[in-house]
């Protein structure tokens, strides 16, 4: 009925779940703190529009470590990873399309209220 995974190195019992050693967790924490420091420091370096992408990249790396090791997705069933990544993909889909709408629309927008006279409607088609 169940094709449960048998943990590696688990002493006795039903073999549920792999154990992440504390040393590794501590190492990950140190890594995360270092990356946090880098993120804050990077803010003072002006790279123009790249800044946000670098900050996001570092945040993604931090997130990846938290997900893989603290949430032990690395040692878990692949389907759980699919669920998590799937949810991120759907968020990306939503953000990208909604952003595409406002980005393509904004340059066409008048400021202020709509024109009062009917003839000016002709001018509103790009």
């Amino acid at each position: 009925m169940s094709h449960g995974s048998h943990s590696s190195g688990h002493a006795g019992g039903h073999g549920v779940g792999h154990i992440v050693p504390v040393g590794l967790q501590f190492g990950i924490l140190m890594l995360l703190l270092v990356l946090t420091y880098i993120t804050v420091a990077a803010r003072w370096i002006d790279l123009g529009p790249l800044n946000i992408w670098i900050a996001m990249l570092i945040a993604t790396i931090k997130a990846a470590f938290v997900v893989l090791y603290f949430m032990h997705l690395r040692y878990d069933r692949p389907f759980n990873s699919i669920i998590f990544i799937g949810s991120l993909l759907f968020v990306a889909l939503f953000v990208c399309l909604a952003l595409a709408d406002t980005v393509t629309n904004k340059p066409r927008m008048w400021t202020g209220l709509a024109p009062a006279v009917a003839e000016t409607q002709k001018h509103s088609d790009p």
Partner: peptide, 20 residues
């Protein structure tokens, strides 16, 4: 999940998105 904009064809959505 990819078609929600078809409720918004007349709402002032961009044409690009309308086409998609």
């Amino acid at each position: 999940f990819l078609v929600w904009g078809h409720h918004m064809f007349t709402s002032g959505q961009s044409e690009l998105l309308g086409v998609i």
